[in-house]
């Protein structure tokens, strides 16, 4: 409960409720339907139900340093089953976003690197060229792990499913997309 005292109980929950999809977090009745539905609940530091309880107790650091939201697959099974109409998937996305800001220089989990890389690539090319993206990701995280991915990657490559040449948006539409995205980023998010 130390965290709650430092940051204030309501700050954190208000931060989450202010994000689209996070509004209903306070309606949670702790029934655990989300955790029972989640394919990855048993791999998480805290189950989705526990994470919501921690967030409501204002335990910001515990929540944002956990691996829970980063194991969310965005399969929305919790969301369609929640009896209170909460959207746990969007709450997970919101927590991922906050965690990313919290640990900007040293993300705690690999998925954060992957997500950042994907979004930077969309911003730069308007598309996601897979080969370049995968190579950059493994160089940034664990080049040795790339060895485990070599066989699936070769399978894709030899079946004409991983073009060497990156597919990009044409210069004119790219200019338009960039103008839109730069403007969006300048507005500083939602």
């Amino acid at each position: 409960m130390v965290t709650a005292k430092v940051h204030g109980v309501n700050d954190f929950i208000q931060e989450i409720s202010a994000m689209p999809g996070g509004e209903k977090i306070n309606l949670c009745i702790q029934c655990g339907t989300c955790s029972a539905s989640c394919p990855n609940a048993n791999k998480m530091d805290y189950t989705p139900r526990e994470l919501i309880a921690l967030a409501r107790a204002g335990m910001r650091d515990e929540v944002l340093s956990s691996n829970t939201m980063w194991l969310c697959l965005s399969c929305y099974l919790c969301t369609v089953r929640c009896p209170r109409g909460i959207v746990p998937t969007y709450i997970m996305h919101a927590l991922e976003h906050l965690s990313m800001r919290h640990y900007r220089t040293r993300p705690r989990v690999r998925t954060a690197r992957l997500y950042r890389l994907f979004s930077d690539t969309v911003h730069a090319f308007g598309m996601i060229p897979r080969l370049g993206c995968m190579m950059a990701y493994f160089l940034q995280t664990n080049p040795l792990k790339a060895l485990r991915m070599i066989r699936p990657a070769l399978g894709l490559l030899t079946h004409g499913r991983m073009p060497i040449k990156a597919h990009k948006l044409e210069p004119e539409p790219m200019k338009q997309l960039k103008a839109i995205l730069d403007k969006a980023e300048a507005m500083g998010g939602l």
Partner: peptide, 14 residues
């Protein structure tokens, strides 16, 4: 989904 997590507004605009 990744862009939504990093910058939701930019993702919507995309």
């Amino acid at each position: 989904t990744p862009y939504t997590v990093v910058d939701e507004l930019a993702a919507f605009c995309c």
